[in-house]
Nucleic acid binder design. Structure first.
Lengths: 201, 201
DNA sequence: GCAGTTACTGAAACTTGTTCTAGATTACGC
DNA sequence: GCGTAATCTAGAACAAGTTTCAGTAACTGC
């Protein structure tokens, strides 16, 4: 089994890699300040010291840009989880812990979260590949929480179905919270509720 | 118990009601043809023979317009379900039936569905009230499926949590299908999976 | 080190959602 | 019916995402 920490992507020169990072950093910064609508392409370009055309060469749309940012953040979260994985008893509890920990992180930067999640949910077919990447990373994280220290054989179709439902709930619930239509407690409840689909072990 | 078939709304004169209906009809038409991006405010205005400013007076944004359209469609579905409610044995099965029937309807107009669902997911705080309306209607539909012919006492907090999770899954799953990231079979599986949260009776 | 290709810049142009304005029309209280 | 206020219309204007283009800079193969 091969694991991809970084998404596969055409190889970039050093300066290009630097540009890409500047762009993502600028996006994160603007998003953290005012959410989705504060991420304006002209501002991102200016802040990352790149021409507008170049920005669009790297990320073909605002949604692509924000989904890439999401992947970036997710990657950091994932690394952090690998350093200090949840230590609870059952797989169900580990998944709940994982998601609640992620949620706690997101509460620290609600605007950033809003920008990324809105983009993820709004993304259409043209962003399919990128959304899939995020989706795979999320799946991996949850799978790792389920297996814990165990060897972790191939996930069954059933496992994958449950994980899909969990991520669906996770995303929608988060959006509802960001929009003020759900409380923090409700998000927590929803996570716990959906995780009941994970068999006790 | 009072039931609201129509959302409460400032009383309108006959001509205003007619305008409103023309606008919703035009929106449905355009959405059915080409989805979210085909619903262009100028076109909606022209097709419904209303000035752009008037369109904005009735619906303060494109997202408001599409969420209102969603409510409208949902209302029709709900009426239809009341005429011929699912007759399956358990509440779980009735909910699955209900959602699958809704899904079948949506497969008939994928573009329209895409437009409405994208708007619903993209909606921000400013559309909170309207989204809540849709959300309540959905909840009611599922609750009715759960109770079947029975008297149907007040839903418990647990019931509501399960229903929230079901709707979250329902929406996200649908979006994934519309974006070509999930097959029809997967949507079906996801629905069946999440409905396992409903206790057997 | 050079020719040729590809990438980047700055700026204008285009698209579509949204707002604004001035004047015409309609609804409403009396 | 009449005057007043709210509503509607046509159309310009504005905002932000996206595209385009001419010119400049950087990379690549030789």
């Amino acid at each position: 089994m091969t694991t991809y920490t970084k998404a596969d992507r055409a190889p970039l020169t050093e300066r290009q890699e630097a540009r890409r990072r500047r762009i993502l950093r600028a996006t994160t910064q603007l998003a953290a300040r005012g959410g989705y609508e504060s991420v304006q392409m002209r501002e991102v370009a200016e802040l990352s010291e790149v021409a507008l055309g170049t920005l669009y060469r790297y990320f073909p749309s605002k949604v692509h840009l924000l989904v890439a940012t999401m992947y970036d953040q997710l990657d950091q979260l994932h690394a952090q989880l690998r350093r200090r994985p949840p230590r609870s008893a059952g797989s169900r509890e580990r998944v709940v812990d994982t998601l609640l920990r992620a949620f706690k992180g997101m509460q620290r930067e609600p605007h950033l979260t809003e920008a990324m999640m809105r983009a993820l949910q709004f993304a259409d077919r043209s962003v399919g590949a990128e959304v899939d990447t995020v989706s795979r990373e999320t799946t991996t994280m949850i799978l790792e929480a389920i297996s814990g220290d165990e060897p972790a054989g191939e996930p069954t179709a059933e496992d994958l179905a449950v994980i899909r439902v969990i991520t669906h709930t996770w995303h929608s619930s988060l959006i509802a919270w960001l929009n003020g239509r759900a409380s923090i407690a409700q998000v927590r409840t929803d996570i716990e509720t959906v995780c009941r689909l994970i068999p006790e072990d």
